[in-house]
Design a protein around this nucleic acid. Structure first.
Lengths: 169, 169
DNA sequence: ACTACCATTAGACAAAGTCCAGATCCTGCA
DNA sequence: TGCAGGATCTGGACTTTGTCTAATGGTAGT
């Protein structure tokens, strides 16, 4: 990744990284400012959607977001949620997590980090970028540029079914 | 990753790794043997499905497999393809690749390796496990066991759109 | 107030995958 | 050979996630 100045007052990533997110915008004003900083006009719906993600600092799926938003702004439509999430992605306000065979999760933390994914419970846990050293990027396929690295460590609850069935011995 | 013994006679991973897959079963007899080795009764449909994957040694989606199978056995149904792929997964004959927001890819190579994924073209390329060193597994979330690590390097064709839009400067 | 333009909305639509109940295919055995 | 029983396969209905579209609503600038 290259330049990374900017930003309201969220996370300083000028040089090092942080183990944990801290000054997160929780008030709607903070959220609105953050939207503006990313060139996004802060409408009601957008603020609610961003607020849902940033307040919980959690990985949410589109329908969880829809539910959260409807709790306060009962008229939000599915289409708006999808449109808005797509916009946020383009503007790099959030990040997309492809980990579940069925739905996408949205991650309000755009700084480099990785994830544990519990394949049974569906739970996602952050792995700080520096907890894991990745050495030696192999050369990329010719004619391509890297966009990002995702490391996903799939876990399962200790003692939860299905470890045995493998090839016959 | 830790232990990783096992496996009939496909790929020796006892100590080192191989850069490239070699003794791949291409004839239907080979495929049938491989199915039996994993405790799977080799029916026509199952042989065709496994054959499609092993012959091409490629990452295929369910509908690509369905198409490939139908080319020879025109009566194969969607349900059978899905059932069979699920069975193959359980028996660890193949591996699931969650990389595309919309569909699952199935990988006939179950030895440890990673992937490039071109987010524009959808192309998947293997990264041999030893081309990439991952140091220091962080401790797992309490009460969980690791099932596997997936490293996905997302790429985009050199010069293909959309790198600019980021946060306002 | 008028006009553009952008954002939002409901609902129709598309695609991947699941589920189920009936039909088929084996296989062992009399 | 004939048959019963279990495993496998099949079409089609169904579910879920996400997309698209046409119409409506809001707002800034004149």
């Amino acid at each position: 990744m290259h330049s990374m100045e900017f930003q309201s007052g969220f996370q300083s990533i000028t040089d090092g990284r942080r183990e944990h997110v801290d000054p997160v915008p929780v008030t709607r004003e903070d959220v609105a400012a953050r939207l503006r900083a990313h060139g996004i006009a802060p409408t009601h719906q957008r603020i609610e959607i961003a607020h849902a993600l940033f307040e919980r600092r959690a990985h949410l799926s589109a329908d969880q977001i829809l539910a959260a938003v409807n709790a306060r702004h009962p008229e939000a439509s599915k289409a708006t949620v999808y449109n808005t999430l797509k916009l946020f992605l383009e503007r790099k306000l959030i990040r997309e997590l492809i980990v579940d065979p069925v739905k996408i999760f949205y991650d309000p933390n755009t700084t480099p980090h990785h994830h544990f994914y519990d394949v049974v419970t569906g739970e996602l846990t952050d792995i700080p970028a520096d907890a894991l050293r990745i050495e030696g990027l192999p050369s990329l396929p010719p004619g391509t540029v890297a966009e990002g690295i995702d490391v996903i460590i799939r876990t399962r609850p200790l003692g939860a079914g299905e470890p045995p069935p493998g090839p016959a011995l």
